[in-house]
Design a binder for these strands. Structure first.
Lengths: 224, 224
DNA sequence: TTTCGTGTGTAGCTTTTGCTACAGAGGGGC
DNA sequence: GCCCCTCTGTAGCAAAAGCTACACACGAAA
């Protein structure tokens, strides 16, 4: 169980620095803080969106579920990140199009829809924040779409390991989590990893992938 | 060869109505008009973006090219549409990440980057236009990503035919164009179409697909 | 009419990916 | 130690999709 969120913790985040630069205190503006002690599904697909979500502490996982029941992680939200899907919903009066799960000890700030839209009309910092967040997502999504067409699963896996391994050394993630990120299945991921291990490109441990030969991995991340 | 663009033509578009509601005339603001008589590649991947592009007449096709040389159409821009990729580039100082081709007799208005950014800071109509265009794209992209994971090619093809056939009757598009939209190849598309023809769901003519049985097609567009 | 380019029909093979099924390995709690 | 749960290793088959290769059809231009 984590300690309650301190104002100090809020002020560390760029988002809130931007917001407070407008001379407003978010809590006074009506922002609510929610805390989740444990892993819990906090939004289901089709839920209505009450406001703009900003992660203050911990992590949120946004994912979709295919009809066959497979989960595919869309992205994570770390402290300071805004949920852009929720922003979209606010500006288009739509229901939330995915699922969201909180990790243990996660705090989320919620700025009510109306408040956010009002702030957007008057505050340049909120305008820029919004547009920037949206653009970044658009690019990420287009890149991913292009990748799916251009790269086979092995290349996408190689690329994923490269990008997410801290300092290009190792990646702490189970094989099913990997599969979920790539929209594939564990067995297939295991098969591909096996080949990489045979090629001495990586080593696998329980819940960890150790990158042995980053250059070779980068080569596998290339088309073909 | 088309006639030059008339002011009347500009005023018909929602975008410009929004803009002129701000009491500004876009041409006076520095918008330039470009006309293309024939099919021509007007932007290459990596080109710098000079401003916000608005289609006034005709159509632009935005596409990516995979390393193997296959084109995959990302989307079309019809009169009144803004190129959101270009918007993104403007707000993030990036180079254009795809290719753009003009159809014959196409006119495009270009609002210089700086002008657009200035307008964005002051004009609510431009703010809303921008955010709305971005959100819509984000949703479209996420939907497509989810579809690729959840649906097989046959279902995606069925859905595509349904969505794009005018009034659910027929779709004027060659099989290679279809393949390009789905990021697949002509032969595979032909194979799937063949099966649909055998099932009496569609009829195929040269450059045309006639929808015979929309309900059956909708059924094929479902997962599995 | 002939020719040529583009669009379509089709076959067969290969590769990739998914699915089922099971065995073993490691680690935490009892 | 023992149990149980999760994570991993592996095999084998099935389905999906891509690639190669060719034949034919249609229509426009010469």
């Amino acid at each position: 169980m984590g300690e309650p969120v301190a104002t100090r913790e809020l002020e560390k985040l760029d988002v809130f620095r931007d917001l407070s630069a407008t001379g407003r205190n978010m809590l006074e503006c009506g922002m609510q803080l929610h805390h989740f002690d444990e892993l819990k599904t906090i939004i289901n697909k089709g839920n209505s969106v009450s406001g703009a979500y900003v992660v203050v502490r911990g992590r949120l996982r946004v994912y979709s579920i295919s009809p066959s029941g497979n989960e595919a992680t869309l992205y994570f939200l770390n402290p300071g990140d805004i949920c852009i899907l929720a922003l979209n919903c606010i500006f288009n009066n739509m229901d939330y199009p995915a699922w969201v799960q909180s990790e243990p000890d996660t705090s989320v700030g919620v700025i009510p829809s109306l408040t956010y839209r009002t702030l957007f009309q008057t505050e340049p910092s909120i305008q820029n924040l919004t547009v920037h967040a949206l653009s970044v997502l658009v690019f990420r999504l287009m890149e991913e779409l292009e990748e799916i067409h251009a790269l086979n699963l092995n290349a996408r896996l190689a690329k994923f390991i490269l990008m997410r391994s801290e300092g290009g050394k190792e990646l702490r993630m189970t094989q099913s989590e990997l599969a979920s990120h790539l929209g594939s299945t564990r067995e297939v991921v295991a098969k591909l990893l096996r080949r990489m291990v045979a090629d001495k490109v990586i080593r696998t441990l329980r819940g960890v992938i150790v990158v042995e030969h980053p250059e070779a991995l980068a080569k596998q991340a290339m088309p073909q």
